[in-house]
Structures are given as structure tokens and as C-alpha cells.
Design a protein around this nucleic acid. Sequence first.
DNA 1: TCTGGGGTCCTAGGACCC
DNA 2: TCTGGGGTCCTAGGACCC
Length: 417
Amino acid sequence: MFALVDCNNFYASCERLFQPQLHGKPIVVLSNNDGCVIARSNEAKAVGIPMGAPAFQYKTLFKEKGVYVFSANFPLYGDLSDRVMKILANYCPEIEIYSIDEAFLDLKSLKNIELKSYSTKMRKSVLKATEIPISIGIAPTKALAKVANRIAKKFPNETQSVYIIDTDEKRTKALKWLKVEDIWGIGRRLSLRLKAIGVNTAYDFCELNSRWVQQNLSIVGYRLQRDLQGKVSLQLDSPQLKKNIAVTRSFERDYKSYEDIKERIVTFAVTCSERLRKQKSCCNSLSVFIRSNRHKSTLQYNNQISIDLPFATNSSIELAKFAILALNRIYRKGYDYKKAGVIVHRFCPEVNLQQKLFDNRDNRHLPLMSVIDELNKHYGPQKIKLASQDPKRQWKMNQLKLSKAYTTNLSEIITTN
DNA sequence: TCTGGGGTCCTAGGACCC
DNA sequence: TCTGGGGTCCTAGGACCC
């Protein structure tokens, strides 16, 4: 059996943790620059705030309904996620951390346990240690565990937030209940195509001819169908090194000048190289994109360029240099730029880099970079910068409602009187 | 005024090899 | 009239996830 554990309204629950007076109150968490709603408590869902709602359009509703608004505080969420995952791993060592708030457990190594009481115990442990409420779905396959989890979440009173699909009757009932667009792995496009041929529920999807599914939805759809039929086709994934790293941001205002954009691009490239070094990879190519403000009626310009690097590297200095070269080839004067990003691809391990016959610049900065990484780890992110990340230039994300980094910054730790 | 930021996998088709 | 038979690698684009 597999379990899917999912934290309820995770970011909202994290914010509530240090402000217990907000229990039962509507809470929303906003994206970077306080742009859109990216998480809602149940109470916020109930007053009709949709996912992705632009904050400025909902200001009056927030006020009317007494909604508590928070800027995204990712250090806090990341730390609480780690704590939740550690507790889960204590209960079941075979764990796949699927996202910041979800994990699959492969229960096959647990012998002689009663699933319902074991899960309930696990749920109570997490709640006691972190105050994060979780829902647990258990079934013979991953896709069915997803379905079971959805039921646990939808009917917390009837299920006590733990639901197990362990008979064929339960499976059939669940699949007939689940709408096709709510199947894990069936998105907007596919659900439209499926509905057009009369497939409205997960049950209908399972009944489709499997050859048709493979021909039309590829091997991905075929595996999914089998998994939903109760035949294990999706296994627990082990953690892998990243294959791409992207650092992209919307700006807090429109940027016009080349210098401003260049500074941001350099900073994005530096962050990419830090993440590369963290997983001990070098990259062989890099892309840069810039976009004008698509919400304005002004003249639009979007462009992107990929360049191959002459040697694999994870040096901040080299990657910043190449990112600027790439930017220079696509930057055009006269537009209002709103968003940009740097993406690195084609990784290889940091050790045993391919030597070049004539050009031995490969990773000569590595010792320097490890010193910088150490210093930044100790004194705070980006304390040591490149000169091209102009230290006088002050850009700041709009984060008017940021809560404290209660669990990761000693100077922001909670105090009592 | 103000509209997020990351990822993965698969396939078709082109370019190339012997 | 007749025109070989295999392969691999890479990339763009499409689909999905949180």
C-alpha cells in the first residue's frame, strides 16, 4: 500500500502557527511582490477568494470579510516542511517528498500494523510537534492514494482526515465520485478532450480501451490508467539531482534602463550558480529571457536566447559574464520590462570535468566560490556579491505583510513576556 | 499603482551515423 | 519497372505537477 500525506492549506497553516488567534479566521498568502493569492485557509475559500486572485482586485473583499493577508515567507514554510517530513520519515522510512507540502510513503516495509490507527497516530504526532494539520490517503497505488487523500480532505469529519481504499467496492465508488478533471495527471487540456468523448469521471477513464489511451495520451496516460485500475505502475521516486535550474522574477515596477535589468540578470545568474554548486553540478548552457509588461497596452517585447558555454562551469563570475553576453543580444531599448530570468541546463558533475584541449579555464574559480559560499552561509545570503551586482542599488520586493522568520533566524525568534 | 515561481516527462521530427 | 535498413542524439513544444 501507498500513502499520500498532504498538509492542509500549508502556507496558511504555517502563518497561523505563530498567531493562534487566527484560528477560524480567513487567511490568504500572496506571491512575490504581493501579487496573487497562492494559498487560502478554508475560511478564505468559503468567502469566495479564488486561487491566483490578483491581490489588488480583491482588496475590498479582504477588508469586508476581515481576511488576514500575508506576504509569502518561504524560509518559514521550508523549515516547517522539513520538520513535517522528518516526522513522517520516522513513521515510514520509504518516503518520497513530492512537494513542499506532500509526501508519498511506501508502506510495504511496515509489517503487522493496523493502517488506520497507525496513520491516525502519525497525524497526531505531526499536529502536536508542528501544529500543521495533515490529511492521509492510503491505497494500493500512488494514483489511488491521491484519490483517497482527496476524500480524506473533502470529508474530514466522516474520515477523521484518514481514508483508506482497500477494497474493490471502495475503489469503484471513489472513481465514480472523482471528476475526470480532478485526476492527478489529467490537466485542463486532456480533461477537455476526454469530456468531448463522454469521459466524465475517473471510472469512465478506467473503462477506456487501454490501446486507445496509449495512442492518444501516450505512455503517461497508460501508466496512470493502470495505476487507477489498481495495478501498480507508478513507483516511489528517489531524490534526483535537478536537471534545470531557473531563477526568474517579476519586477516590483517596470524597468526601462539596461543597467537595472543587467543588475538583476547578474543576480539571477549568481543564484543559479549557487544552486548548481549546492548539488555539485556544472552547466553547459544558459538561457536568458526578458519580457515587457503583458498587462499593459504598451508595445510588447518578449525574447529569449540560449547559449552554449565554451566549458562547463558553476562559477558565479563566469555565469554572470555569459548571462550578460546573452542579455546584450536580446535587449532592446524603449520597452517597459516587467519580468526576466536566467535558466541553466545540460548539467554534468563538478568532479571529473571534461578537460579542454586548448582552453583550460574550466572551474578555476571553485576554491574562491567555496569561500564565498561559506561566508554567505555564515553572514547571510548575498553578503558577498559581484561588483556588477551594484551594492548601492536597492531593489526590494513588495512584501508589506511579511511575517517573521520565527524558526530560521535567531533575531526573529518568538518572544514571551 | 498592483497580475508568481519553480519543476518534470514525453514525443515528433530533423540531423546525423554506419 | 526499379530506389536499403538499421540506428542515435538533440531540440522544441506540449502536457502535466506543486
